[in-house]
Amino acid sequence: MKDKVVQAYDKLALDYELHVDTESGHNAYYERPAMLKLMPEDMNGMAVLDAGCAAGWYTEQYIRRGAQVTAIDISPEMTAACKRRVGDQATVITCDMSEPLPFGDDSFDRIASSLTLHYIENWTPVFREFSRVLKPGGKFVFSVHHPFMDMGHLDKPDYFKQRLLSEIWNKKVAGPVEVTFFHRSLQDIVNVTASHFIIEQIIEPQPVAAFKQLPEAAEWFSKFYERLSTNPHFLIADVRKA
């Protein structure tokens, strides 16, 4: 599974670097506003881990807010894209966050992970490591596929069974790329999270209507606004270390 994820996201890296920020409404008008709302506007003096940094959009946002950012991703091509974006303004490392992290205890004030954890089968060692490197009282915010989103991919619908699923993404640069991920139920997401952190909020985001006024957003809103306003697609958890 890890090899499949690396191969897929190495192929997708240029699309993320060149097109996702401006052409993916699911990111720009749906997931990202909800995630950023949970992060402080003033992050001066904060050490932040961007866990699953991809091409570095979130890394750049945290830098702009004053944070000292460490960005990690399992894909070498994604971390290379992140480095091109932020230069020496952040520490960018290629590493597998399902393995022990190369950071000391109580290293970070915040951990943020955007649309990454559904590529990992077992969250327990990941959350154990996140708890270790997070300072007491530190916050952890993550987004994943909403379990209801996955149901259309199940050939034999069994909501409660964790399963490996796949779909084909057609991208401008990479062309068709098979992306694999794990479906897990809401109770599994909540229970494994609660076993390591204190849950403060579970959020099912909706599209930000204010973006409707942007000319470049019109097509996306016409296709997806009603659907995403009434059917959850992503899930966000806002949690903290005791």
Rank of each mutant, 00 (worst) to 15 (best):
D88I: 08
I72G: 06
S113Y: 00
M46I: 13
R64D: 10
F211E: 06
L36W: 03
K135H: 13
Y16N: 01
D10N: 09
R240V: 09
H233Y: 11
P40W: 02
S143W: 02
P147T: 07
A112D: 08
M43I: 08
W123Q: 05
Q7D: 15
Y30E: 00
G25S: 09
E99N: 15
F234D: 07
H19I: 15
V6W: 05
M39T: 08
A51R: 00
R64C: 10
P40E: 00
I199D: 05
V173E: 09
Q162P: 08
E99P: 12
V48E: 03
L115F: 10
A80S: 11
H26W: 14
E31T: 09
T94S: 09
D150S: 04
F234S: 09
I63N: 00
L235W: 00
E219H: 11
L49Q: 02
D21R: 13
P100I: 02
A13T: 01
D109N: 10
Q89F: 14
P176D: 11
F127T: 04
C82R: 00
S195A: 13
A90C: 05
H153Y: 14
L14C: 08
S98Q: 14
R110S: 15
P232W: 02
I93V: 12
H118L: 08
G66H: 08
S222C: 14
V177N: 09
G56C: 07
K37Q: 13
Y29D: 02
K139M: 10
D150H: 02
F197L: 07
R85I: 12
W169P: 05
D105K: 03
A217T: 04
H153S: 10
A237F: 07
K139Q: 11
Y29N: 03
A112G: 11
E17D: 12
T193Y: 08
P102S: 06
F108P: 01
D106R: 03
H118S: 07
E167N: 15
I203V: 11
K37T: 07
V92D: 00
L49W: 03
I93K: 03
S98W: 08
L18F: 12
Q213L: 12
P102N: 06
Y62M: 12
V20P: 00
Q61C: 13
K139C: 09
G45W: 06
G87I: 07
G52F: 06
I72W: 00
Q213M: 14
S75W: 01
K135A: 06
K2T: 14
E17T: 05
G52W: 04
D238E: 11
V6S: 06
P176M: 10
R84E: 08
M43W: 03
K212C: 15
V48P: 00
A218Y: 10
A217R: 05
G45Q: 07
W123L: 14
I63M: 02
A13G: 03
H146D: 09
R85Y: 05
P207N: 02
K161T: 10
D3L: 13
Y225N: 05
F224R: 12
K2F: 13
G25K: 01
T22Q: 13
I120N: 01
C95E: 13
D96P: 09
I111C: 04
F224E: 10
